[in-house]
Computed example of a mutant assay.
Amino acid sequence: MAEWVQNLMDSMGYLGILLLMILENLFPPIPSELIMPSAGFAAARGDMSLPIVILMGVLGSVIGTLPLYYIGRAFGEERLVKWADRHGKWLTLSGKDIRKADDWFDKHGTKAVLFGRMVPGIRSLLSLPAGMSEMPMPKFLIYSAIGSGLWASALAGAGYLLGENYDRVERYISPVSKIVLGVVVVAAVVWFLRRKRAQTARS
């Protein structure tokens, strides 16, 4: 993966960074923790400009959020509520739960998008609830850009400073990504089991 990322950037330059960061949001196996440090290393070698590397990383990341945002927006809260009321019993999910989640995102969505863009494992997934809750596009883009800017700057800066050892960034962050995903999965399972138990107790 590292060699493929490096070869793409060597052949396409800044456009390669843009393309890779768009793909990273759609295909999580292509990690930004590898793309941006590699680009930072290229800047350290003098092949690229660090500010433009970061700009391309942010631009690609923001563009990459749009497909999932529009999918969430097209699916919509009402459609999801109807689906949950019809078929959500096996997930212990109801339309009321969807509305509660949507209300929560309406209140805290800007923080979720801002800080979530810096959390490996869930950063790309946040676009779906943002679209479903119909977060205004300007607000979504602004907070996505700020969060992505901080993340891209940190990764590219680390690659710039580490030089040939830029791959250490991905090596250190990869376990964090797995831990975050593990926590999310465990939390979902615990919530599911509690809802099942509560339903059983009521019946």
Rank of each mutant, 00 (worst) to 15 (best):
A2M: 10
E3G: 00
D10P: 00
S11E: 14
Y14M: 10
M21N: 06
I22V: 15
F27D: 02
I30R: 04
S32G: 14
I35H: 05
P37W: 08
S38W: 00
S38Y: 10
S38M: 14
F41D: 03
F41K: 04
A42T: 00
A42M: 15
A43V: 09
G46C: 11
G46F: 06
S49K: 07
V53F: 10
V53T: 15
M56W: 12
V58A: 11
V58E: 08
S61F: 02
L68E: 02
L68V: 05
Y69S: 11
Y70L: 15
I71L: 15
G72Y: 13
G76A: 02
W83Q: 09
D85P: 08
K89H: 13
L91F: 15
L91C: 04
L91Y: 09
R99H: 11
K100F: 04
A101K: 02
D102K: 09
D103L: 12
H108N: 15
G116F: 03
R117K: 13
M118Q: 12
L125T: 08
L125D: 01
S127I: 05
G131T: 08
G131Q: 06
M135F: 04
P136V: 06
M137N: 03
K139M: 12
F140C: 11
I142G: 06
Y143W: 15
A145M: 10
A145C: 10
A145K: 06
I146Q: 10
I146Y: 08
W151Q: 04
S153R: 05
G157D: 12
G163L: 07
R168C: 00
V169E: 06
E170S: 14
E170W: 05
Y172M: 13
Y172L: 15
V176R: 06
V176G: 07
V176P: 08
S177Y: 04
S177F: 03
L181M: 14
V183F: 09
V186G: 01
A187C: 09
W191M: 13
R195Q: 15
Q199S: 07
T200W: 02
S203F: 00
